[in-house]
Design a protein around this nucleic acid. Structure first.
Length: 292
DNA sequence: GACCAGGTATTGC
DNA sequence: GCAATACATGGT
């Protein structure tokens, strides 16, 4: 399929915003160098790109689960085809020298539009955890409680399924002490106590408060869900890397509190704060990690 | 064995 | 409110 916009598939799928994608070589297309296996909207796929800048994407899927047309539409949505990345990177790059560097470093990185429930659960798991670990837990939960969806992949288990599980059950997937958070989240979603569909319509602060009614969801996780699932591009989630990056690049090395870093990012980057955050995150992990 | 990883809940002041 | 602490698990 031809993708209508600039994209570096590898960076986009591997930068840490989504936890399902595994590097693979199973895509047999001449010239295809990079391919990833994962799940988009409840269908297992392999997706590949000849080279980082190329608009041509190759997709493998199981046609007994979904028709090509429907899948392609889902992929375009997932990869946020409507985001004008040229415009976004040009405007962000003009903000300051640091952001110009970050945008250049992460050229082609797009903010995905993920399924809200899986995104929420994933970021609950991500707290005080490593990205590879999160991926393992998400994968394990899917294999145990999800459904086959093609190419050996499994859907992420519905809230109703996880809410029926005991903490002991869920802990088998190695989520550690976050087991009760997952059960609490699944229960509140399944019962309708927290309605993910409504959050899309809410003003930002209200949506954030709503998400934070779930145990295990604090400011950072709520912001990540708002950015990576609801595509609220005006949010600026602050984790250890972003706090580090803001301190190092913008505050002359002086430590900054998470809340202050968030206010700084949202104020400085406005309606593109979410993209700024992702570029900064990717840049900081690539550059700052070597200095520690 | 200490320390860290896309933080958060709990406790004590 | 705000600082200190514990927290499963896996990797260095």
């Amino acid at each position: 399929m031809d993708f209508g916009g600039s994209i570096d598939l590898a960076t986009t799928l591997q930068c840490g915003q989504a936890f399902r994608w595994k590097r693979t070589t199973s895509l047999q297309v001449p010239g295809t160098l990079i391919a990833f296996k994962g799940v988009v909207s409840s269908w297992g796929i392999v997706i590949g790109q000849e080279e980082p800048g190329s608009p041509r994407l190759y997709v493998q899927y199981d046609s007994s689960f979904v028709k090509r047309e429907r899948l392609e539409k889902a992929i375009r949505e997932y990869l946020a085809e409507d985001d004008d990345l040229c415009f976004i990177s040009r405007r962000l790059g003009a903000t300051d020298k640091v952001m110009a560097q970050a945008v250049e470093y992460g050229a082609g990185l797009r903010v995905l539009i993920q399924e809200p429930w899986e995104c929420l659960a994933s970021y609950i798991i991500s707290a005080n955890n490593s990205i590879p670990n999160v991926a393992r837990v998400v994968s394990s939960l899917s294999r145990r409680y999800g459904e086959p969806c093609g190419l050996g992949e499994y859907t992420f288990p519905r809230p109703e399924v996880l809410s029926a599980c005991s903490c002991e059950d869920i802990r088998l997937s190695k989520c550690g002490y976050r087991d009760r958070f997952l059960v609490d989240a699944a229960t509140k979603i399944a019962s309708g106590e927290v309605r993910l569909g409504e959050i899309r319509k809410m003003p930002l602060s209200e949506a954030r408060r709503e998400l934070m009614r779930i145990d295990g969801v604090g400011p950072k996780v709520a912001d990540c869900v708002l950015l990576f699932a609801y595509h609220r591009l005006e949010v600026f989630p602050v984790d250890v890397w972003i706090a580090r990056a803001v301190s190092h690049f913008y505050m002359d090395g002086v430590a900054i509190a998470p809340g202050a870093a968030r206010a700084f990012g949202m104020e400085r980057f406005g309606d593109l704060a979410g993209y700024a955050q992702e570029y900064l995150f990717h840049y900081a992990r690539g550059v700052l990690s070597k200095e520690r």
